[in-house]
Design a protein around this nucleic acid. Structure first.
Length: 559
RNA sequence: GCCUCCAUAGCUUAAUGGAUAGAGUACUGGUCUUCGGAACCAGUGAUGGGGGUUCGAUUCCCUCUGGGGGCACCA
């Protein structure tokens, strides 16, 4: 529809250099769409904005296509378009016919999109902070699917680093029996996390440890067979299986992993091949000077001859394009890494332009745990599953009759939506008492609305009433208008890779539906328009379900 | 010190340079002969300070204040 209106404007007024903007007015009384072209053009044309708008309107009225019921020019120079009732009922019809495909765009049709997110450190437990990355990453992946592309989700687990060498040093000191003595996976994970912290501390405090840690790290980089490598692989396996479990519970399935150790090898090779061209030696290290580009210098291979995170990321880029040849490669990290990553991309652009140009880096804020409740209830930074269990308990407290699976869906909805409802980028101070909610702007509210709509549909079916698009006498209501906006909201979210636009829209849709629900008796056998109202109810349920699906939130049958 | 991001009701926040700055929460009052009250309706309440660009600025530019992040061998 947007495109049609643009064409209509272009046929009414000659503009070749600018694209007329079509937007949703804040208030429905200002039309279903509006444009500000007249105000933009006024000065150039030497006319008053309102006069020009008036002229454009009279040109449009000469053509006046069927889908338009009214066009008007108003102060200070807006042109408002009112669409016909037929347009909206045909749009509702589209929803009912396309079902789970309603809203899918063709923006990236026939393209391959690779999304990397949720990359864990295999010696640090997957804690609640990682849920933020996973939630946003998963939403962006699903958004990519809604853009018509074929999407591959991968993760980049960190499996070699000096930090891991430090953790392993403690594990060796403690003896392998210590690890085995913990009966549950949960306890093993806590222990591994603890080793990481202890190792880091000891490394800073005790110089005699430094050399030993470096030797262990060397074994990891060079994959020297032996007891150290065996122990290391065992730990890697433990954390990886936890990672797979928790991300699956949250709704993510990764098609593949690229390990940091693989990326390191490739990265080191590529950096060494480009010494003198892109990189240079300085104080025994291999660096990239970013100052001329307004960036800063970073080390890619350190004095010890090991690739740093920077070189590994170059290797990662190489492997991503080598294995998947994506048209767009998206990665999700926290915003702390933004300046660092621009240096990597700048360096890489001199090796392979595509790698920089096809890469999209979306960042998000960080989660902190300063809330008193959090630390007293869970102690320190909790594992993702621990937080979910706390939320789950609250859900069950609220409605005890829910089965486990449904309660888990509601808990996850609450957690995920608290992250997705606002723009990614800001830090969240996570506190289950204030960050999570089941009412108002919340995930469970959206689920409730869809479940409620579904419940009416079921009852109607029992009464022998089916949804149907029929001619009605009532004017187009806000609900039809709101439902019809979904495809445009999806394209905006894809354009910016910003899932929160979907969240904002779903809240609006739910409010509109619930408000309509409060004033409309849907299941009314006396009402000749009941079938149409059921069609609106079904369309609402479909759009809510599709939108929540993008956010990675499932709608239960009942709740 | 240099570079960057951020600042909107008490709190959490929305707004591709557009119309009366939109929600939630909290607070106050109201709705239920109803298909699900995790709901609906109404009220109180906001763009950090100062300049500038523009027909029009929460949005762009400058500056001040207050916060976050980055700046050579961590990831």
């Amino acid at each position: 529809m947007e495109e049609k209106l643009k064409e209509l404007i272009k046929s009414a007024v000659k503009i070749d250099d600018i694209e007329p903007k079509i937007e949703f007015p804040q208030d429905y009384k200002n039309g279903d769409f509006s444009t500000s072209v007249a105000m933009v053009l006024a000065k150039r044309e030497g006319e008053k904005p309102l006069d020009l708008a008036q002229k454009i309107v009279s040109e449009i009225e000469k053509i006046k296509p069927e889908y338009l019921s009214k066009v008007e020019a108003v102060q200070p120079g807006f042109i408002n378009f009112f669409l016909s009732k037929e347009y909206f009922s045909s749009e509702i019809k589209n929803v009912l016919e396309q079902k789970e495909n309603y809203g899918i765009s063709e923006k990236h049709k026939n393209k391959k999109i690779l999304v990397e997110h949720s990359s864990p450190n295999l010696f640090k437990p997957f804690h609640i902070g990682h849920v933020m990355n996973n939630t946003i990453g998963e939403a962006i992946s699903r958004l990519a699917k809604f853009s018509g592309a074929s999407v591959t989700e991968i993760s980049y687990p960190s499996d070699v680093s000096l930090g891991i060498g430090k953790a392993l040093f403690i594990l060796i000191e403690d003896g392998e029996g210590k690890l085995d003595s913990f009966p549950t996976l949960r306890e093993k994970l806590t222990y591994l996390g603890d080793c990481y912290v202890r190792g880091t501390k000891l490394y800073d405090e005790d110089e005699s440890v430094v050399q030993k840690v470096k030797e262990i790290t060397k074994v990891l980089y060079e994959k020297t067979p032996g007891e150290i490598l065996d122990l290391y692989n065992k730990c890697k396996e433990i954390n990886l299986s936890y990672f797979k479990d928790i991300t699956k519970r949250l709704g993510s399935e990764f098609e593949d992993f690229i390990f940091e150790s693989e990326a390191g090898e490739q990265g080191e090779r590529i950096v060494r091949e480009n010494i003198g061209k892109v990189f240079e030696e300085s104080e025994g290290a291999i660096i990239f000077k970013g100052e001329e580009k307004g960036l800063h210098t970073r080390v890619f291979i350190n004095k010890e001859g090991f690739p740093t995170y920077e070189a590994k990321d170059i290797g990662l880029l190489f492997l991503k394009f080598e294995r998947f040849s994506p048209d767009i490669s998206i990665l999700i990290t926290d915003n702390q890494q933004a300046p660092y990553y621009s240096v990597v991309l700048e360096a890489v652009s001199e090796i392979n332009k595509d790698w920089k140009e096809k890469t999209v880096h979306r960042t998000h804020g960080r989660m902190s745990f300063k809330g008193q409740k959090m630390s007293s209830r869970l102690g320190g930074v909790p594992l993702a599953t621990d937080v979910l269990d706390v939320v789950l308990a609250e859900v069950k407290e609220k409605s005890s009759e829910l089965d486990v699976e449904t309660a888990d869906r509601v808990a996850i909805a609450s957690l995920k939506f608290s992250i997705l409802k606002s723009m990614a980028g800001k830090d969240i101070n996570f506190d289950p008492d204030t960050s999570l909610s089941f009412e108002g702007d919340s995930g469970p509210y959206l689920q409730y609305t869809a479940v409620r709509a579904n419940s009416v549909l079921m009852k109607a079916k029992e009464a022998g009433l089916e949804p149907e698009i029929i001619q009605t006498d009532t004017e187009t209501g806000e609900l039809e208008k709101m439902i019809s906006r979904f495809p445009k909201v999806v394209s905006l979210a894809i354009e910016e890779w910003a899932p929160h636009h979907i969240s904002t829209y779903l809240l609006n849709l739910s409010q509109t539906f619930n408000s309509w629900y409060g004033s409309t008796k849907i299941l009314d056998l006396e009402n000749s328009e009941a079938k149409y109202n059921l069609a609106l109810t079904l369309a609402t349920k479909i759009v809510l379900t599709n939108g929540l699906n993008i956010l990675g939130i499932e709608v239960p049958e009942k709740m």
